[in-house]
Nucleic acid binder design. Structure first.
Lengths: 114, 114
DNA sequence: CCTGTGACTTGCATTTTGAAAGTCATTGTA
DNA sequence: TACAATGACTTTCAAAATGCAAGTCACAGG
């Protein structure tokens, strides 16, 4: 294997998830969101170009899969892969620490579909 | 409470830790590193100005404390606060996921002192 | 006086981010 | 038949963050 910065697992995770937006997209997916506009309508208001970029990178990294849900015109939605689902414990640990140290923060509720 | 982006705990954690370097500084501290040059000599080669910036922000956020270890001339070292120590489970979860999905990565060993 | 050490700071070019507006195919509405 | 709306993006461009190299500052030891 050839690593970009080092063979530290944390470093390599940060190379794909280390920014202010990527994990929020994962969070939205975990909460049940699937479509472009659902992500852009989250309260953090991710910019459209940033979202497109992150979705592309997450797909390349194998954390999400893009899938058409209709034709004419074709429209896509995004789903977590098993690898992506595996991040749940990381999100959990972050939520536990975050709720403790940022009083007033609260876990977001799952979103319903259709 | 007034939150920058939203009241989501994950979001607020990302506002302080969401970049490619901050968590690596925390990692080094957890491994036992304390001094400026110890951080700059980690294999990821953090730039000196970035390190200074992150140390300042981590201190402001209450995750680390700066402490003089000698005078004439005065020299400083950094230590994790209890709040900072609380991040260990987050690092653990990241390491578990990272080792699984980036084959060849390995947890770094603790460093010795003096 | 001269060199070294440790913890930074400065200057500047490159890269990334963010806000707003635009594109494109197709469908529903007047 | 035109027109607005929908959904998933792309483009433009200014502003902020990053990265590299070099410089600073206080003192210690030779």
């Amino acid at each position: 294997m050839k690593f970009k910065r080092s063979f530290c697992p944390i470093t390599n995770v940060l190379d794909t998830l280390g920014d202010k937006w990527t994990l929020l997209v994962i969070r939205d997916l975990v909460l049940g969101k699937r479509r472009y506009q659902e992500f852009t309508s989250s309260p953090e208001r991710i910019a459209s170009n940033i979202l497109a970029d992150r979705l592309k990178k997450l797909e390349t990294a194998g954390l999400i899969a893009r899938q058409a849900y209709q034709r004419n015109p074709v429209r896509y939605e995004y789903l977590l892969t098993e690898k992506g689902e595996g991040l749940k414990p990381v999100l959990e640990a972050i939520i536990v620490w975050g709720k403790k140290h940022y009083p007033g923060t609260k876990r977001f509720p799952r979103v319903e579909h259709r």
